[in-house]
Design a protein around this nucleic acid. Sequence first.
DNA 1: TCGGATGATGTGAGAACTGA
DNA 2: GTCAGTTCTCACATCATCCG
Length: 603
Amino acid sequence: MNRQKLWVQNAHSIVKMKKVVQLFVSGSEVQKWLLEEALQVVPTLERRNQLKSLIENAHDLGIPMADLEGKAVYPEGAAKSRSNQLAWGLVQLVAGNPNGVPRNKKKIWTDEWTAENFVIFAVVLGFLSISQDDLGVVQITEFGQRFADTMNSNDDKNLNSEEKTILKEAFATYPPAVRILELLLERKRSNPSNPVMSKFEIGHLLGFSGEPGFTSFDNAEWFEMLHDESNSDERKKIRQDVEGTADKAARDISSWMLAVGLVNQERFVQIVDDTEEFMPQGFKITLLGEQVLKRARGNSSNGKTAKNVDWRMLATKTANADYVKVRRSYTLKALQATSSRDEIVDRLEKLGLFDGLGVLEADISGLRQFGLLIEKENNGNYILKDRIRDFSVPAINVTEELKNDALFRLKNELQNELTNIDPRDVEIIELAQEKQKTSSKQTTAATLFETKTVELMKKYMKLNGVHLGGPKKPDGFLYFGTEVGIILDTKMYSKGYDLNINQRREMQDYIFDAKRKKPGVPNNEWWKIIPNGLENMNLKFMWVAGDFTGRYLEGIDETHNKTEIDGAAVDIPTLLRFADRIASNDMDLNQFSNKINNGRMKI
DNA sequence: TCGGATGATGTGAGAACTGA
DNA sequence: GTCAGTTCTCACATCATCCG
C-alpha cells in the first residue's frame, strides 16, 4: 500500500510543476533535455540507463514514485549532509535549478524531499495520479495531458491565459484552495473595507489545524512578539522564521493562487499599542477568485465542481496517521450516503472505526476545514453539500494494538469526554508530548505550546492574562480580578518534567521579582502586568507540562517554602478537564484556585 | 522576502541478541 | 540447538523551522 502523505511542502513553482507533468509526454522538451543533457550528472551508468528507459516508457507505463523522487545517495566517503547528495531521481533534475541551487552552486538538482513534493503538487491538482499499490506508479491523467499541451511560460508571474484557464479549473477541485477562497470571501463580506487575512488567520482555520503537521501561530501573539522586539535583526527573524506548518501551507497555496490571479497579496496591518505593525503575507480574494469559488461551490445555474479527495490527504503526522486517514475517509463516505448522525455512527461502528461522538465531531470539523462543504443541522445531523469524485480507501487491519496506542486513546477519550471544549483544542496534548524543547532556546515549538496553554486558560477558564516568554520572564501570567494571580511556566518534555534545580530557581526568581516589584529588576519589568491591588499573598505559581516525573513534588515544596506562596504542577489532560468543568460552570475559579495547593493538581 | 534547503525526528521492518 | 520475545539498527518518511 502506498502511504504517501498528500500535503505539499517546498514546491511553489507552477512552471517547474508543469515540467514534471510534461515528463510523461513523449518527445516533450523536458524529456529531450533529460536524455540529451541532464542525465549526465547521474553518478552511475547503470542508473542513467534505468532512468533513460523509464523516460522512454513514461507515457505508457508511468514511473514509480521512488524513481521520480530519488533517495539520499552520497559520494563514497562524503559526509551524509544534504548538500553532498547526488542526483538519483528524475524530478530531482526536473525541479532543480539550472544555475545551481543557491547554497551549492555545483548542484543543478534538488533534494529528494522537494522532488517528492513537486510530484504531489501535480497529483493534488489532478494532473498526475499515483497508484495505491506498493510501487506507487505515477501516471499522467487526461487533465494533465491538457495542461501539458498548453504553451509554456517561463515565469510563474507571467503564466499565459491557456495555462491559467486550466489551473483555475484545477484549483476549483482542490478542497484546501477552495477553503482559502471561502475564508477570504467571508472576510471580505464581514469587513469590506479591509478584506485582508494574514497567513496565521488562514492557517488557524485550514486543514486539520492543531494536529502535528498542522501547527499554526496565533495572529495576535505574533504581533505582540514582533512589537516587543526593538532590535531590527530580531524583528526580521520573527518575520521570516516564526510560522507554523499550517501557516506555511496557507502561504504556499495562496501563492499558487496568486500566480493565477485568484488572490492578491498585501501587507496585513495591525495596530499594537498605538503603533502600526505589519506582516508581509496577507491575502485577499479577487473578483476572479470569487468566480472560481462560485464554480466550486455551485449555484442555481451551475453545478458544483466535483472535488478531488484522496485518503492520503486526510492526515499527516498525527498519532496513528494511517488509521486516522482511514477513519476520516469512511466518515466522508458515510456522509455521502446519509445525513443521519446515527447512521454514520452505525456505519463506522461496523468497520471498527467509531471512536466516540467527540472524535466524530472533530473529524467532521476537520473535513470542513479541509475544504468540503458540510452543514450541521439543529437535530445533530450533517449534510454533505459537496460533490466528491470517487476515491478508494485501502483495507487496513484495525488491530487492537493500533487502537491502543496510549496517546491516541487518551486524545480520543478527552475529545469525547470534554464536551465543552472544542475538540481541536484537545490537540494540545500531542504538542505536549513532543520531544524535549528547551525554553531557553525559545524554539518556535516551545513558544507555540506556551501560547496554546495560555490561550486555552483564557478561552475556557475565564481568566485574564498574557503569554510572556523570553529571558527572565515566566511563560505567562493569568489572573482574575485581584483575587488570584498565577505565574505560569510550561514545558514540552516528552518524557515528563522533573522540576530540576534550574527550573525551580527560575520560578523562584519570577516569584521574588513579582513580590518585590522593584523598578529595573529584572530590566524587562514583566511584573507590571500584575493588576494593581493584587496582594502578594494572592500570587500562585503553576507548572504545566504533558507529564511530571522524578522529584517534582520536592520542587514544588521547595518553591513553596522559599517563596511562601502556594503553587502546583498540572498535566495537560488534567488542565483540559479543569477547563471543561469551568466552561460548563460546574466549577468556579475559587474552587480551582483552592486546588493549587502545593502538590499535583487533581480533579 | 520567497521559494526552497536542511538537519532533525519519527517509524517500521528486519537483523541481532537473549534467556529459558 | 530452538525459538519466541525483545532490542537494535538502519533506511526511509515527514517535518518545522531556517536561510541565501
